[in-house]
Write a protein that binds this DNA or RNA. Structure first.
Lengths: 215, 215
DNA sequence: TTGACAACATACCGGGTAGTATGTTCATCA
DNA sequence: TGATGAACATACTACCCGGTATGTTGTCAA
């Protein structure tokens, strides 16, 4: 199940700001979003935000971190489940895609954070913060990496170049953060089916057998 | 074969600026890139750029347009080739991925342009320009859409939801603009093999038969 | 030779924004 | 009940950057 911000952050005031900030960053991008924009979307002013966060970069880093921690929390219960690796991958992938959809704003921030770091668009001080976050993120990626290797060893997946395959897999699984938008009257089941289609596409890309692809 | 800027743009002065601008936009993003940055990377000043382009938004739009036109030019010779649709798709996809890699900076601008348009981060005047460009781009997308439908009708592809499948396919084919970076001593053949792996992954996602997947 | 224009460089202005310094309000507790 | 501090709002500053107005240089045609 997907986890929201309020379950993760105890401080309500901070959680509200983080959620508003995530939405603004998603809608307008990092630089195009002013602190006043975030404040306005809360019906407040700058003072409120700077009372809880030291800087704009700091606020963004927290949104970044939050997005990743929610992913970890969603994946944790699935890590040690038994059975074939390919089945475990499918559960993990499904959970991941669900996170991409249900916490889209935060995941966009994660994406942007990675992009900013790679481009070096960070203050030296921020660079260490981002470095730690990306370290954490790469561990997250490794969880998938290990599973698909294991599934290949078990004969369920079939691919040659691990790095590229892993890259492409994540590209597919993450893609909803770019094209998904909620439809009116959409149920939880609708979203899960949507996620399943994404997972199936990635499954095929990994060389997964077709019989198991439908679930 | 991939086409560069100089083949497309007659005016050398404009071509130089466009190339520098594309690189800057890729490295720093649109807003983070100042006109002075672009000028500095050319060893020049603002004056040179504003002599050839009316505004920053206009400069960006030209980079955007250039990226798309190069794609069209690369795809044009393949449009009407004979044979099975799935084979034609493979050739088109291969050419597309090659474009993503060899003109990465411009393709990133295209991506950013789409993103900006969707977010409404454009001046009203720019909005019409972008609208036309995106119209053109959607035609480009339709060329692939038609081919994969045809290939499905011929029994070579197998998928249910066209929209999502098309979305995910492009996501995979475009992905090199995010993760590709040239290696020292890399040959044309190396890049083509890399592209082939991406194409194969997308092929599988479309439900393509495995026998033909290796080429 | 000169004037005229293209192709820039230089100098400057104004708007927007991150960050700060300083109120103001309200709850809590001694 | 008065003091204290958290949780904001308001007012202000400094800076960056897009755009413009103006200067400079080389070239080419008459």
């Amino acid at each position: 199940m997907a986890l929201g911000v309020r379950e993760q952050v105890l401080d309500h005031a901070r959680a509200d700001i983080l959620e508003a900030a995530a939405t603004c960053f998603m809608e307008r991008g990092y630089t195009e979003t002013s602190i006043d924009d975030v404040a306005r979307s809360l019906g407040a002013t700058k003072g409120r935000i700077y009372h809880h966060f030291r800087s704009k970069a700091d606020l963004f880093a927290e949104v970044f971190r939050m997005g990743m921690e929610m992913n970890y929390a969603a994946l944790e219960p699935l890590r040690l489940t038994r059975g074939r690796a390919s089945a475990r991958w499918r559960r993990m992938a499904q959970a991941h895609v669900m996170q991409m959809i249900t916490t889209k704003a935060f995941q966009r921030a994660v994406w942007m954070g990675v992009d900013m770091h790679l481009r070096g668009a960070t203050t030296p001080e921020q660079r260490t913060t981002f470095g730690a976050l990306l370290q954490h993120r790469s561990e997250y990626g490794n969880m998938f990496r290990e599973v698909i290797v294991q599934a290949r060893d078990e004969g369920d997946f079939d691919f040659t170049n691990l790095s590229i395959t892993n890259q492409l897999m994540f590209m597919t699984l993450n893609s909803p953060i770019f094209w998904y938008s909620p439809r009116t009257g959409e149920t939880r089941a609708d979203i899960e089916e949507l996620a399943q289609q994404v997972v199936t596409c990635a499954w095929r890309g990994l060389g997964g057998k077709e019989e198991q692809a439908k679930r």
